[in-house]
C-alpha cells in the first residue's frame, strides 16, 4: 500500500523538534482604502526559526480566524522570491533585515525569541493601501504600458542569431531585467521615488541592439508617466538599491538620467505619449 510518510508520521531518528519563539507584532490594520487605519498589537508563541516570515503570519492568521477575528491581509504568491507580490516594511526596512532577500524568503531565524516586530505596508502616494498590508502597485504597470517595451509584433522576428549581442551587454541587460517589480525601492526611498524600477527597465532595453530604435522615445514616455503617477524625485540617496531584493545597481539611474536628457535636448523625439 502506497502511503507516504509525513512529518509526524514515522518520524525518523535524526529529526528535530524546532524551538518555538514568542513574538510581539505591531501590524497596520486598515479595512479598506476609504477608512483610516492604525497599528494593532498581536502576540504569538507558535513561531519557529524554520518558518518563513509569511508562514509566521499564516500561523497568526489561523489563530485570528479561529478567534473569530479578521486575518491580516498581505500580498503573496510564489513564495520563492521571484513574482514580486510580497513586500512588507519590517521594522522600518523594506523586505526586512536580510540583504537581497524578499519578504517571502525571509526566515524567522533572522529574529530572536521575544522580539518586537513592526509590520507596515509600502508607503507612497502612488501605492495607495487597499487593505491592511496590501497596496495598489498598478502605477508600475502603467509605467511599462507607457513605453517599457520593444515593439515586436508576433511573427515578424528575424533569426535569433542574426543579431549579435556582446556578452557584457547581454549580462548587463539581464541584471537590469532581473527586477521583480516588488516596489521595495519606492517604499524605502526617502523621496518615495520610482527611479530604480523605471531605470531598470530603461537600462535593460537601452543596452540591447533590439532596443535602439525606440530608445529615446521610450525613456521620454516612461519618465513622463512616472512623474504623473505621483512618485517622488530621486536625489541619489541610494537606499533603493540597498534594499532591492535583486540588487539592481544605481548605474541604471545614471543611464536613465543621461538618456532622458538626450531624449529631450539632443535627440528630441517621443515625449508625451507620441
Amino acid at each position: 500500500m502506497a502511503v507516504m510518510a509525513r512529518p509526524g508520521a514515522n518520524v525518523a531518528p535524526n529529526s528535530h523538534i524546532p524551538p518555538t519563539m514568542h513574538l510581539t507584532l505591531h501590524v497596520w490594520r486598515q479595512h479598506d482604502a476609504a477608512s483610516p487605519g492604525k497599528m494593532v498589537q498581536y502576540t504569538t508563541d507558535d513561531a519557529s526559526p524554520d518558518m518563513s516570515f509569511l508562514e509566521m503570519l499564516d500561523v497568526v492568521n489561523e489563530e485570528l480566524t479561529l478567534r473569530g477575528e479578521e486575518p491580516i491581509a498581505f500580498e503573496h504568491d510564489c513564495r520563492e522570491g521571484i513574482c514580486g507580490s510580497c513586500g512588507l516594511m519590517i521594522n522600518g526596512t523594506a523586505h526586512g533585515p536580510e540583504a537581497a532577500t524578499t519578504t517571502c524568503q525571509l526566515h524567522m531565524r533572522s529574529f530572536k525569541d521575544g522580539d518586537e516586530i513592526y509590520i507596515e505596508p509600502w508607503r507612497s502616494k502612488a501605492f495607495p493601501v487597499i487593505k491592511d498590508l496590501v497596496v495598489d502597485r498598478s502605477s508600475f504597470d502603467r509605467i511599462i504600458q507607457s513605453g517599457g517595451y520593444i515593439s515586436a509584433p508576433t511573427g515578424g522576428a528575424v533569426d535569433a542569431n542574426a543579431m549579435l549581442v556582446a556578452k557584457p551587454d547581454a549580462d548587463f541587460a539581464f541584471e537590469a531585467a532581473a527586477c521583480i517589480g516588488c516596489g521595495a525601492c519606492v517604499a524605502q526611498c526617502p523621496n518615495a521615488s520610482a527611479m530604480l524600477f523605471t531605470a531598470a527597465k530603461v537600462a535593460h532595453l537601452a543596452v540591447l541592439p533590439q532596443g535602439q530604435p525606440e530608445r529615446y522615445a521610450r525613456v521620454g514616455q516612461m519618465v513622463e508617466r512616472m512623474e504623473s503617477e505621483g512618485f517622488g524625485n530621486c536625489t541619489n540617496i541610494g537606499e533603493c538599491s540597498a534594499v532591492c531584493p535583486k540588487g539592481i545597481a544605481l548605474d541604471v539611474i545614471g543611464l536613465l538620467n543621461r538618456d532622458f536628457r538626450k531624449a529631450r535636448l539632443v535627440n528630441n523625439d517621443g515625449g508625451d505619449g507620441m
Partner: peptide, 27 residues
C-alpha cells in the same frame, strides 16, 4: 520644488523607519 514634490509623494509616514545604507550627507 523637489522637496515639495517628495513631501507630497509620501503623505503617510512610517511609524518605524530605518535607513539601511544612505550616507548622512545624502540625507
Amino acid at each position: 520644488q523637489l522637496t515639495q514634490q517628495s513631501r507630497a509623494s509620501r503623505p503617510i509616514r512610517y511609524v518605524k523607519h530605518t535607513d539601511p545604507k544612505a550616507t548622512w550627507a545624502s540625507r
